[in-house]
Design a protein around this nucleic acid. Sequence first.
DNA 1: CGGGTGATTGAGCCCGCTCAACTCTCGTGG
DNA 2: CCACGAGAGTTGAGCGGGCTCAATCACCCG
Lengths: 230, 230
Amino acid sequence: MNAHTTHHDLFRPLSGCVFADAGTMSFGFFGGCSELVGSSFSYAADEEIFGEDEHADYVYRIVSGAVRTCRILADGRRQIIGFHMPGEVFGCAATEHHRTSAEAITDTRVLVFERSQLERLASHNVEAACRLWAMTARDLEQAEEHVLTLGRRSAVERVGAFLLDLDDRAGVAGTIDLPMTRRDIADYLGLTLETVSRSLSQLQSDGALVLSDARRIALHRRVLSRMLQT
Amino acid sequence: MNAHTTHHDLFRPLSGCVFADAGTMSFGFFGGCSELVGSSFSYAADEEIFGEDEHADYVYRIVSGAVRTCRILADGRRQIIGFHMPGEVFGCAATEHHRTSAEAITDTRVLVFERSQLERLASHNVEAACRLWAMTARDLEQAEEHVLTLGRRSAVERVGAFLLDLDDRAGVAGTIDLPMTRRDIADYLGLTLETVSRSLSQLQSDGALVLSDARRIALHRRVLSRMLQT
DNA sequence: CGGGTGATTGAGCCCGCTCAACTCTCGTGG
DNA sequence: CCACGAGAGTTGAGCGGGCTCAATCACCCG
């Protein structure tokens, strides 16, 4: 099923102001409450949110869950471009069409905003335009860090840097609940799932972390930072 | 010598409107003539334009030559984040400080704009703000393509994709004059200079290009595109 | 001429990939 | 209740693409 074509059908009953159970998350696009208001929407684990080359009509802000954006080569090789966590925005390209696909990693709830409305807001409101720019610039910063990691770091260093980044972005510092599989991590870091698994074991035996469960990691940030000589 | 500190000294005699010999290049920041006007400035080959973590006071547009932006790890490993060709803008981070250094590859002439002026312009002029956003978005697009290349392509594919990209961006289609060394290309593609050299030889024997000189390449775009199954 | 830098090519090695075996968990159904 | 299968993860053994080290060549500038 194509998530794009269903938007038009499924949006109607949800459109307008949504004031129900979003927990501590605010509804506005930029995190405040006074500007654009989005429609709540849910995706099951592994469901496609939008596809590569699809027309970019909507922009998304994650309420709960996690999302991956991917590019696929003709022969099936997959590169995950980014992971997106609660509070973060994705799908905000400046181009007419998306250059990645996006899929929910776990069951995920998002706020959906119409791109046209966002553009209208930006063309009136200078502050909104600047915040849009800042968001894209932040994505660029992350992409450049990603390039450094893929170009010049070893497998263990990649996994370590990935965990530090994830820890910076979510929940309690030092405790990570991975929403994604080893294969997802591998496709993000340009490795195989076996190498990711071996690197995690290596980091554990080096005392940089403890794997209580396969998806639950206690990070020793000091040790890890020193290992990466960041 | 630190290029940053010399700006303040060397800028004075060049400040104000510059109407001399810029060839076909216009002076305005965005390519038009009616907005911001920059100061012309030159750098010798391998001269640093700005350093990592330096305060981002200026934004640059290349008139002639070529520029690389780099990140260096503590142990000396270098990753080139991007190459910039005539007409392109670099140094336009949204952060207070640069996250890369920038160096002239060959003798390079640039137009220098004050960031503060650019920001002032963007805060008045919605179109300028949008074009700034579009520029950053374009950089992001390139960075994400770079991530795909580094994460999931083989050595020969990386070199091929690099050449196609370079050919798209400069001069006569199908003819490339490389301004950078094999080592620069290697540090951009996450390879070694030997592997870049071997990949070029391989591509030549596969009929995807002809190396008339080490720095001069005749591309057979059809053959190359098909090889990369883009 | 010699010295230096950039590029090419060869030989051997190693990190990460491939293939495979095994474990563990979880959900389903007899 | 256990049996079974599917998916996720770990670990081992061997292979190979790209790295390392080294030799050689071309070219430029003194």
